[in-house]
């Protein structure tokens, strides 16, 4: 287990993902998210600074969290996205769903202002 949860407000939490989120710790991550969701956490900032591995199982549990939260008006956002994670996010086009912020502070600020300006990286236009 490399991730840690930290409450930022009664409804928001920051999750430091740590070195890896993959098939080895994905189930633990999911259980921890569900526990926090039960406690009323609706807004999750995933801090990917220093994360070297995000495999498809890891991404899958983030998707599960997203699917669970969005009907209740919740949100999952990414902060300090490391290069290996950025590659996965680009490949799966999930930047279309998860807002990205340069820092955790920026993500939390956006949340408390509740009119967040999304920082969506631009793709190069498609080849003809």
């Amino acid at each position: 287990m490399s991730f840690t949860f930290q409450k930022a407000s009664p409804t928001a939490a920051v999750v430091r993902i740590g070195k890896a989120l993959d098939f080895r710790n994905a189930a633990e991550f999911k259980a921890a998210c569900q526990e926090h969701a039960r406690q009323g956490i609706r807004y999750y900032t995933l801090d990917f600074s220093g994360t070297g591995i995000l495999d498809s199982t890891g991404l899958g549990v983030i998707f599960s969290l997203y699917r669970q939260l969005t009907p209740a008006g919740g949100q999952v956002v990414f902060a300090s996205v490391s290069r290996p994670v950025q590659v996965v996010v680009q490949l799966t086009r999930t930047y279309k769903v998860f807002r990205q912020f340069p820092t955790v502070e920026a993500a939390l600020e956006a949340h408390s202002a509740s009119a967040p300006a999304a920082q969506v990286p631009q793709r190069p236009s498609d080849a003809a």
Binding site: F63, R67, L91, T92, R93, K96, V97, D126, A127
Partner: peptide, 24 residues
Amino acid sequence: CRPILVTPDGPGMVEHSDLILGLD
């Protein structure tokens, strides 16, 4: 994973892609 178009002039990515299935 984006397909790769391999021509005698070099490889290129088949760029366009939409969101993964099952999410939205």
